[in-house]
Design a protein around this nucleic acid. Sequence first.
DNA 1: CGATACATTGAGGTTTATCAATTTGTGTGG
DNA 2: CCACACAAATTGATAAACCTCAATGTATCG
Lengths: 254, 254
Amino acid sequence: MTNSAGKSQKSDVAQLRTAIPRAKQGDSPCAACQVRHLAVCSALEDSELNLLDKIVRFVELEAGDSVFDEGEPALNVYNLTAGTVKLYKLLPDGRRQVTGFLSAGDFLGLAASDDYIFSAESVTPASLCKFSRADLDLLLEQAPQLERRLLGMARYELAEAQDQMLLLGRKTAKERIASFLLMLSDRAVCRGEADNPVLIPMSRNDIGDYLGLTTETVSRTLTRLRTGGVISLETDRKITLVERETLQDISEGF
Amino acid sequence: MTNSAGKSQKSDVAQLRTAIPRAKQGDSPCAACQVRHLAVCSALEDSELNLLDKIVRFVELEAGDSVFDEGEPALNVYNLTAGTVKLYKLLPDGRRQVTGFLSAGDFLGLAASDDYIFSAESVTPASLCKFSRADLDLLLEQAPQLERRLLGMARYELAEAQDQMLLLGRKTAKERIASFLLMLSDRAVCRGEADNPVLIPMSRNDIGDYLGLTTETVSRTLTRLRTGGVISLETDRKITLVERETLQDISEGF
DNA sequence: CGATACATTGAGGTTTATCAATTTGTGTGG
DNA sequence: CCACACAAATTGATAAACCTCAATGTATCG
C-alpha cells in the first residue's frame, strides 16, 4: 500500500524541483499559492497568511504514495495543491471502495474520530500542504472564520456523497460512467482547466472501485459509449465528450 | 408524496396531544426538551436557550407526511425530536435512493445550496423543531460555538456517508442487511433505548431503497438470516439479534 | 526494444432484479 | 368482536445485468 524504499528516492528529486518556485526568497509561500482561492485558505485575509506559513509543511508525493492509512491516528490535515489523490476504504477480503478523488484545492483529513476513517493515496504525482491537527485547532481560535469555511466545505462534500449514494445504489453501469465523465469535466472547469477533452488521471481499476463496478465493466461500458458515438477515446486517459447533452441525459437516468 | 386533506386532519389531533408537555406554562420549551443533549442545541448554555425559544416553531407530522421536497428553496432547518424521517433522492423514472434515516436529535436541512438537494418525509409520526435559515444565521452570530457543533455533526454525517458508499458499492445483500440491523441497534442505544430486539420503523421497500436492493431481496435475505438462526423475527417490524457477533462478522465482510 | 502493467475483449456463471402469485398484517365498519 | 378491504411482506420462477476467469492487445518506461 505504501511505497518501497527504491521508489521513494525519486520523491526527493521531485521535492527539489518544486521547492524553488514554492518558497522563493523566503517570503510567504502561502501568499504565492496558486490554488489559494480554491482552498480553505481563502477564508484568511492576506495579513493572516503568516499564521499559516508558521505551521505549514510541504509534502511532495509521486504516483502511488500513501498519505495515510485508515485506522492510523489522525494527527495531520492536508491541503492538496497539485495532482490527484484517492480516498478509499477496504473490506477484509480486499474489496475496495474509493469514496472520492481529490484535486487541487481540496482539503483532506478532517476526520470525525481520532483516527483516520479512510486511506489516502496519490494517483498522480502530488503536492500537499501539511498541518498538524493541534496547530490547526490553535489557528481556529485565532481565525474563527475558518470554521465557517470548513463547515461550507463539509456541506459540499455531504452533497457530493449523497449524489454518489444515488449513483451506487440505483444507477446502471452506463449511467455511472456518464456521471463520472461529466464530474471530471465539471471539476476541471472549477480548477480553471478545459472542460473537454476530459483528462482521466486514474486507472480503470480505480474508476471501478469508485463506481462500484469491475475494471472490465468500466472498460466495456466506455467501449459502448464510444461505439454509440457519445464519446471518443483519444488515449486511455483522455476522452472527448462528443455529445455532452446525450451524456447528461444518460447520467440523469433518462 | 404529500398527504391528502383527509389524512392531515388527524395531524391536528396529534398536535393537541403533544402540545401540552412540550410547552407547559409558557416557560422555555427548549429547556424542557428531552433530546436536547442529542441535538445541536447542546452547544448552547441554559441561559442562551431563550434565543432558541424566540425563533423555534413546533411541527407535528403523521407517518408519510412530507417535510420538504428536493428542489424547493431551502428556507428552513429542522431538529427532529421524536419519530423517524427518511431523506431520499429520485431519478426521473422513479428509482429512489434513501440517503438516510433520521431519529430524535438529528438535524435536517443544512444544505450546501439555496435549494434542498433531497426530499424529507416522515416514516412514523414525528415531532420537529423548525427554524428559518435567516433566524439560524442570526443565531450563529450570537452563538458562534454553534458553528463548531454543526461542523462536528457534518463530519459525523460524512463518516456515515462513507460507510454507506462502501456498503452500496461493495457489499453483498446479506452484508448490507446485517450492517443495517446493527446500525439500527447502535442508534437505539445512542437514544438511550434497548439494543435488542431492534424496532424497525420503516417498510421493506424503504429498507431496499436505502440499501440499494429491491423489497423482495430484503425480504429473502431476512428470511435466510432467520433460517440460519442469526436473527429472529418477532413481528415484521421487530427483530431479535440472536447472534450479534455473527451478524457483526457478516456485516464487515468476513 | 523488451518487460511490465494496464486495458480490452470473450465465454460463462452468479447475484440480484423483475414479474406474478400468495400470505400475512392492519385498520375500518358493520 | 368479526369480517372485509387494502396494504405490506413473502415466496416462486425467470431474466438481465454485472462479475469472474481467461486470453489477447496495447501503452509506458527503463
